[in-house]
């Protein structure tokens, strides 16, 4: 469990990126922070591994104040996946995946074996192990990034718009892959996105952020959809339009669900 208590971050230039932010992030679930660009998502995420130092407030992991921990050790115990993969261009895929275990002193051969198994986990062909990142597609690079994030078997995985830069088809694949991985591994995932569909797809808990990291609403996708806390949330999730504004029409004695334009999207079972 990760707990934020009244956390504020003010950057040296005076920008208050996160203002009095409090949240409980339950263990072994996926919490998605969603909000438009500049709302403070990345800043919140990076305070968890102390890549950004909070200005005030408390951040605890399993009841332990992270500021009592050594930042390097803390980071090695937390997986971090970023939008542009952040792979080391001069190292082969397999060595990139093994980065943290090698830093932690795992023997080279063992780290390599484990890295190869992780390539399987993220759905990458082992034949790619000896390539360099620049020789992979964007989607493949992101898979490597996920594998690297998992390599030290961390309890916590931080993901900052990891699928934001790949095309929609690949993104859908990667999302499904993450759902499957999470079902198998049960990590505490904190996932940042500006895409509300992605948030609803992946999140057990979805946290909608406004500027300054202010929480507009936090809850399960169903809770947020059924009861948007305010107009901002309703607009952001598009509750009143398109494929979220569904109605039921009776056709041939069955309940057919149609969208705003009257296009059928499915049939109610029950």
């Amino acid at each position: 469990m990760i707990e934020f208590r009244a956390v504020t971050k003010q950057f040296p230039d005076g920008t208050v990126a996160v203002d009095d932010f409090s949240l409980i992030i339950p263990a072994r679930q996926t919490t998605v922070l969603v909000g438009s660009s500049g709302s403070g998502k990345t800043t919140i995420l990076r305070m968890i591994n102390r890549m950004v130092e909070k200005t005030s407030g408390d951040i605890e992991i399993d009841g332990e104040d992270i500021h009592s921990l050594n930042p390097v050790k803390l980071r090695r115990s937390i997986g971090y996946v970023m939008q542009n993969s952040g792979l080391l261009p001069h190292r082969k895929v397999v060595d990139n995946v093994a980065t943290v275990p090698l830093l932690n002193g795992v023997k080279k051969a063992a780290a390599r074996d484990a890295a190869l198994r992780l390539l399987d986990t993220v759905g990458l062909d082992r034949a790619l192990a000896d390539r360099y990142p620049s020789q992979l597609s964007g989607g493949q690079q992101q898979r490597v990034g996920v594998a690297r994030g998992l390599a030290a078997d961390p309890n916590i995985l931080l993901m900052d718009e990891p699928f934001g830069a790949v095309d929609p088809i690949v993104r859908a694949e990667l999302q499904q892959e993450l759902v499957r991985i999470q079902r198998d591994l049960g990590k505490t995932i904190v996932f940042v996105t500006h895409d509300i569909d992605e948030a609803f797809l992946l999140g057990d808990q979805v946290v909608l952020l406004e500027k300054g990291g202010r929480i507009a609403q936090a809850g399960s996708p169903a809770e947020i959809l059924s009861q948007p806390a305010n107009d901002f949330v309703a607009t952001f999730i598009g509750a009143d339009r398109g494929r979220r504004a569904l109605r039921v029409e009776v056709v041939n004695g069955r309940n057919v669900v149609v969208d705003e334009d009257g296009r059928p999207t499915g049939v109610l079972q029950s």
Binding site: R46, R76, G86
Partner: peptide, 27 residues
């Protein structure tokens, strides 16, 4: 060296010395 590569290396838990010797220097 791409700032994001360095940032990622640090975020994986490299010490400053490791960032220098394993990332910045080779690149």
């Amino acid at each position: 060296v791409d700032r994001r590569t360095i940032d990622a290396a640090r975020a994986q838990g490299m010490t400053e010395w490791q960032v220098l010797t394993k990332v910045e220097l080779p690149l």
